[in-house]
Design a protein around this nucleic acid. Structure first.
Length: 271
DNA sequence: CGTGTGCCCTGACAGC
DNA sequence: TGCTGTCAGGGCACAC
């Protein structure tokens, strides 16, 4: 699930129950995901008050009054379960407040949990390397143009590169390229100015719509069974191999591999 | 430096 | 019913 809109939805869902609360108990069932948890995690979080939540790229942020921020990444399969009825064998970390329980569940364990000094988040190595937020002011056609100059790599792969723009994943890159009418294999440096002028709003729109859809399922997210709200997704290209292009241009959606991952596109309207 | 490859891990699903 | 192969929304180390 976790691209930028899913992380944003997750953070908003957590904030409703966690913001301002004191963490009364921390249980670690398995102390490593992609890398080991910080050794001081339990000590720092136990008794800490949550002072705010946030997001950077695909990372979620839980700020505390200990001047430490818990930074989590959901990898491919991670999610937070609120007040789960039953334990899941992949609930690796469980936080408790006076009112709720929050279980970080990640079967594939591609995610991560870190503690970072709140004042030094921007210079934390994984964050320092990130490009601008796609929903922020810094992200524009002019910025993209300069970031893509001389790039021979396919635009699809450029947009997945978190150093160029931070938070896009496979689904939304495929969707945004379709909306902008750009072939995923086109070299980044050869994408024209008019195409970039279409691409930037296409990216913004697809992310904003997904966040809105995710937001509408927040009730499910908070349900006692802890199910994460799934988007009622209606994709235009992702996973639609062999089906007709939604532009009704006679094109059929095709799939091919790029950088070891699937790309879907319409050869009729994406150039 | 830019670019390409393989791997981390578990679960779901298709095909036999 | 069970086996096997393939694929999955991410990121990183490493080779050239």
């Amino acid at each position: 699930m976790p691209e930028l809109p899913e992380v944003e939805t997750t953070v908003r869902g957590l904030a409703r129950f966690l913001d301002g609360e004191r963490i009364t108990r921390v249980r670690v069932n398995r102390a490593d995901l992609r890398r080991p948890f910080p050794p001081e995690l339990v000590q720092v979080l136990t008794g800490a008050q949550v002072t705010g939540l946030g997001r950077r790229a695909k990372y979620g942020l839980i700020h505390t009054d200990r001047d430490q921020t818990m930074v989590f990444h959901l990898g491919m399969s991670g999610r937070w379960r609120i007040d789960p009825a039953d334990a899941d064998r992949h609930d690796h970390l469980v936080l408790e407040t006076a009112h709720n329980r929050f279980a970080l569940c990640d079967p594939r364990r591609f995610g991560s949990v870190d503690l970072v000094e709140t004042g030094e988040l921007d210079c934390w190595a994984p964050f320092a390397a990130l490009g601008p937020e796609p929903l922020g002011d810094e992200f524009s056609a002019t910025y993209l143009k300069s970031a893509l100059i001389g790039r021979k790599q396919a635009i699809k792969l450029c947009l997945l590169d978190q150093r160029i723009v931070a938070g896009l994943g496979n689904i939304y890159v495929c969707e945004a390229l379709w909306r902008a009418g750009i072939h995923p294999r086109k070299a980044g440096g050869k994408v024209t100015r008019p195409q970039l002028e279409r691409l930037v709003p296409a990216i913004r729109l697809v992310l904003e719509q997904s966040i809105r859809d995710g937001g509408s399922t927040l009730r499910d997210y908070a349900a006692p069974d802890g199910a994460l709200g799934y988007f009622a997704c209606s994709f235009d290209v992702y996973g639609r191999e062999g089906e007709a292009c939604h532009r009704d241009d006679g094109g059929v959606i095709r799939r091919f591999a790029q950088g070891g991952r699937s790309s879907w596109f319409c050869a009729t309207c994406q150039r």
